[in-house]
Amino acid sequence: MEIIRYAELRPQPWRNGGGVTRELASHPKAASAQDGAWDWRVSIAEVSKAGDFSGFPGMERVLTVIDGELLLLTVDGAEHPLEKYRPFRFSGEAASHGALPTGDIRDLNVITRTGSFKGYTSIIELSKKRAHPLFEGQLGVLLQGQATVSAGAAEEAGDGAEQTGAEQDGAEQNVAEQDVAAVPAPEPEALSRYDAVVGSDERSPEILGRGFLAVVSIDRVAGEGAG
């Protein structure tokens, strides 16, 4: 189970010097937030003054205000009032400018290379009774409140079909392997604000708590090779 601690991330200047950002994850891993060598990136930016946003030619952006009330984002001359927790998709190539009528904000940025990956952001309310799982290709970011994360239960082998022949011969060995694997699960770990949890299809992390979670999904566009 992988947790990215926000407090340990180093702030980096925007490409145009208009603000700072902290990278949560990228692929492939870039040397810095500025070099653009990645095909996708998830980051949190601090916006404390009006100004132009950096351009990302060949990319698509999903921007979500996660702290503060309002960002007035102008994209290619059209103004879009972005309220808290409402994701907005736009082209990275577009001329974009942000104004802050209600003060400083933070925003969650998902930037993907057009034609290779597609990014999505959903904001969900957490529950103390029903855990929210995170799967492969997802990243969960705690935006507000208190939460813990724990590794989900391991998937059971087989699909419940009746075993015959060689499968029956190996039944005792399977039971023995399951006994060895039945080790106590790790204790749940507390999450701080803006900590991120990396999803997995193997013992998918499960988040419990009270507050709001951003679930970022990065999907490979059909037709692209693995890598």
Rank of each mutant, 00 (worst) to 15 (best):
1 M>H: 00
1 M>Y: 01
3 I>D: 05
10 R>K: 15
16 N>E: 00
22 R>Y: 02
24 L>C: 02
24 L>M: 08
26 S>H: 09
34 Q>Y: 10
34 Q>V: 14
34 Q>E: 12
36 G>E: 13
40 W>V: 10
41 R>Y: 02
43 S>H: 11
43 S>P: 07
44 I>G: 00
49 K>W: 07
52 D>N: 12
56 F>I: 10
59 M>W: 06
64 T>G: 02
67 D>N: 14
68 G>K: 14
69 E>A: 15
71 L>G: 05
71 L>V: 13
75 V>L: 05
78 A>Y: 04
78 A>W: 03
79 E>I: 08
81 P>I: 09
86 R>V: 08
93 E>F: 00
94 A>M: 06
96 S>R: 08
99 A>N: 08
102 T>M: 14
109 N>I: 01
112 T>R: 02
112 T>E: 00
114 T>G: 01
121 T>V: 15
123 I>M: 00
127 S>G: 10
129 K>Y: 10
142 L>I: 10
143 L>G: 06
149 V>N: 03
151 A>P: 09
152 G>K: 09
152 G>F: 05
153 A>H: 14
158 G>R: 07
160 G>H: 10
161 A>H: 08
164 T>D: 04
167 E>P: 06
177 E>G: 00
200 S>I: 08
203 R>A: 05
205 P>V: 08
207 I>H: 04
219 D>G: 03
220 R>W: 02
221 V>I: 13
226 A>E: 15
227 G>S: 06
